[in-house]
Nucleic acid binder design. Structure first.
Length: 448
RNA sequence: GGCGGUGUAGCCAAGCGGUAAGGCGAUGGUCUGCAAAACCAUUAUACCCCGGUUCGAAUCCGGGCACCGCCUCCA
């Protein structure tokens, strides 16, 4: 079987043959959440995509060093704390715990490391000192800023020149900055804000520097894969590159992977529009296998429309697949070969799922005698789903006593071959929101 | 405006130079009093438009049109 793995690299805008820096190991850093509110479907997609990628890398024999951070020091957390009259660290702790629980509910394996900014302040300060020493940053009134113009490759990830960014960016007016695009590595604490002591006074890290510091700490100055949502390309990842490479003089991440974003009913999901779907709310309605399958039947780089119509379709697909658990003895050795080769081509889960459905619906797989199906399901993180009740929960309130009465009456009518009466009773049940099912001489019902 | 991306059946979605995966839906059939379920079968000479390269293009190149994202906090 061909073992070459190709990855689309956002930095070069093309698929490249993957070559690990350390034999048979993959180091991967994925940007995690800023913990100031409940995590949403966007976090879910990113986590599921990279969870599946890591599972697959393991499956083909790599050892993985997978790091996903928590940004637990941030203006938004502080603001939230002020709003709620709670200490910022309590806000962060609450949503960190929630996030970990949510990821587990979604069937995502824990990363090898889940560091937080608050635990890495010394590393951050030391990195900022290195940047200043190299002449790429300057201190002004207790703030430290990165000198964007000094860094040669600035804009290489987002494919923009400093000039074009300058023209097209709304810049905050900040007298401490030498240049509009310079960004903060360290910010002076205002009154009542949490702070850490530093060579530049009491303050806290800026956004971006934490990922440079933590990836350096856990994976080294040069590592294999850096991932995150598309929306992080600029400025977050662009700034990470600048901060890291100016110090190390090495390439930061070899491969940049960016997952596509979520739309809700064809509209962009965003904080400003306010159409965020929380993971917890989603999981009340949709089983994790349905959510995973929705995401994984799309290529990770394309947008996904998250709608109940779509989810219902996936539910039906999965239900059908579940019913068609193959029992025959035919062996289709091609299945594994095909889905693995799809995955080797830039983690094409959508194509892999196509083979999965095809082979199961053909009845040409037999999980009892062959581990191929479970191998696939394990890699996609939907293992064991056949044992679970994947049906969505419809909270229809029904009058069970009345339904039983209808069933009884209809049963009698059917024995009398009074089909007109029987049908009338069926319609009556439907009006009560219930569908009657005649199975093996017995009548059952389900909400419709 | 700058940069990036997308346009494939009713809907969703793979495909990335060799003659259109898969899912949902729909239609016909078997079965059932009727339904439902299940099973069988059918369901794009065709990939936004116009040119070009090629023996061959949904796939590459040029030019349009439409939609989306980033450029502001966001996964």
């Amino acid at each position: 079987m061909n073992k070459d793995l190709y990855i689309y690299n956002s930095l070069t805008s093309q698929k490249e043959l993957f070559k690990e820096t350390s034999a048979n190991e993959v180091s991967i850093y994925v940007c995690g959440p800023t913990v100031y509110s409940s995590s949403h479907m966007g976090h879910a997609r990113s986590a599921i995509v990279f969870d599946t990628i890591v599972r697959f890398l393991k499956f083909i024999g790599f050892k993985t060093n997978y790091v996903r951070n928590f940004t637990d020091i941030d203006d938004k957390i502080i603001n939230r704390g002020i709003e709620e009259g709670v200490r910022p660290e309590d806000i962060a702790e609450k949503y960190k715990t929630e996030y970990i629980e949510d990821m587990e509910s979604l069937g995502c394996l824990q990363p090898d490391f889940q560091p937080s900014v608050s635990e890495n302040i010394p590393e951050i300060i030391s990195l900022i000192e290195d940047i200043i020493k190299k002449g790429f940053a300057y201190e002004k009134n207790g703030d430290v800023y990165f000198n964007v113009q000094k860094f040669n490759g600035y804009g290489k990830l987002s494919k923009q020149s400093i000039d074009s960014i300058l023209v097209n960016t709304r810049l905050e007016i900040n007298p401490n900055k030498n240049f509009g695009l310079d960004f903060a590595l360290w910010k002076t604490a205002k009154e009542n804000e949490p702070y850490w002591s530093s060579p530049w006074g009491k303050g806290r890290p800026g956004w971006h520097i934490e990922c440079s510091a933590m990836s350096r700490k856990y994976l080294g100055e040069n590592f294999d894969i850096h991932g995150g949502g598309r929306d992080l390309i600029f400025p977050h990842h662009e700034n990470e590159i600048a901060q890291s490479e100016c110090v190390s003089d090495k390439k930061f991440a070899n491969y940049w992977m960016h997952n596509g974003l979520i739309n809700i009913n064809k509209e962009k999901m965003s904080k400003s529009i306010g159409n965020i779907i929380n993971i917890r709310e989603g999981l009340k309605l949709w089983n994790k296998n349905i959510i995973r399958t929705l995401f994984l039947t799309h290529h990770y780089r394309t947008p996904v429309d998250f709608s109940s119509k779509k989810l219902e379709e996936i539910e039906k697909t999965l239900l059908n697949t579940k019913k068609r658990v193959p029992t025959n003895e035919s062996l289709s050795t091609k299945f594994k070969e095909l889905w693995v080769s799809a995955m080797l081509d830039d983690f094409n889960t959508a194509k892999a799922f196509g083979y999965y459905f095809k082979f199961i619906n053909d009845g040409s797989l037999s999980p009892e005698t062959d581990s191929e199906v479970s191998e696939f399901e394990e890699t996609m993180g939907i293992s064991g789903w056949r044992d679970e009740n994947i049906q969505s929960k419809k909270d229809t309130i029904v009058d069970e006593v009345r339904i039983k009465q209808i069933i009884f009456e209809r049963d009698r009518a059917r024995k009398d071959k009074n089909w007109i009466k029987a049908d009338e009773l069926r319609y009556e049940a439907e009006e009560l929101g219930v569908k009657l099912l005649d199975k093996e001489g017995k009548t059952t019902w389900e909400p419709c």
